[in-house]
Every structure is written in structure tokens, then in C-alpha cells.
Amino acid sequence: MNIFRLTGDLSHLAAIIILLLKIWKTRSCAGISGKSQILFALVFTTRYLDLLTSFISLYNTTMKVIYIGCAYATVYLIYMKFKATYDGNHDSFRMEFLVVPVGGLACLVNHDFSFLEILWTFSIYLESVAILPQLFMISKTGEAETITTHYLFFLGLYRALYLFNWIWRFYFEGFFDMIAIVAGMVQTILYCDFFYLYVTKGQGISL
């Protein structure tokens, strides 16, 4: 554990809580891509299956359970409780265009051809692109509410901080994981355009 890893995790947690609270408080999921949220739920589910097979630390287990729980709660709010406010017409990105190629890649490029390892690799690859339906939706409607941009900022910041974590771990622990690093770089790059808009406009974004 180092400062980049910890702040990265907290940034990730902040993003998830911000989104959940926004939907809950406004009783609306307008402007939120349900498809991105389904993909994140899939990411956490396939990555944290090791909850059932190995215990690493209380911190690790707690965070995993919170992430998974919040992901499913968010999907529930969007598709069940506040379904009437869900803007499905603008959430038209095809999930299979991400899930199928990512699944194929996970089978081809992984550390070990075993069930759990392939699912873990799948989750890493999928996470790197899971935000695309949300970004696509914003580009389609041409706007995003302020709170939605805060959500995206923390979500993007989290993986950027993980990049520093991996640099730290490489220098001080000699540890590196090429799959996580490359996917993390792709993920962070996808947010760069958004970061620019967030910093220069600071408020809700309208393109």
C-alpha cells in the first residue's frame, strides 16, 4: 500500500458514491448511461470472484464488497427504481461491441489460461473501456450535469493515480503487471479529453 494506491482507491470510492447519491437525491438517472453501469457491475463481478477463494486483507475484502454492492445498487436504481427517468434513447452504445472483443482478447493475452485468471484479465480489459457508453451518451446529448462531471473526474483520476502506484511499485518493489499497466494507460487516456473539458469549463459540460 502506498499513497497513490490509497488515494486511487478513495477516488474510485468517491466516484461510485457520488453517482449513487446523485441518482438517489435527485430521484433521477437522467444523463447517466445504464450500459456503462452494467459493464462496471460486470467488471467487479468477474474481478472479485477471488473473494470466494482467497482472503487478502480486511481492507481488500471490505472495498471489494462495497464496490460490488454499489455497482449493483446503481444498476438497480437505473433499470428498476428510477427506470422512468432513464434516457435509454440516448444510451445507444452497443455493449457487445466491447464485451465480445474484450472477451476474445482476455482469452488470447493473459498471465495464465485458467478460469479465474481469464475472468480477472477480462475485467481489467473491460474496465478500461466500460466508460465509453457514458462518454458516447454525453457526446450525443452534448451536455453533462455538473455532478456527472464530478463523477467522471474521480473515476478517471482513480486510474491515473493507479499509474503512479504502478510506477512506485516498480521502483520500490520491482513489481509490474503489464496487463494492468497497459489497460490502465488506455483507460486513463480515454479520460484525457474529458479532463481537459472538466478543468477548462469546471462546471457542467456542454459541447
Partner: peptide, 10 residues
Amino acid sequence: AEADDDKDEL
């Protein structure tokens, strides 16, 4: 991470 490594990162 090697396959048998515990996956500490989230």
C-alpha cells in the same frame, strides 16, 4: 501478477 499471486489491488 503471476497467476498464483494474491491480487491485492482493486
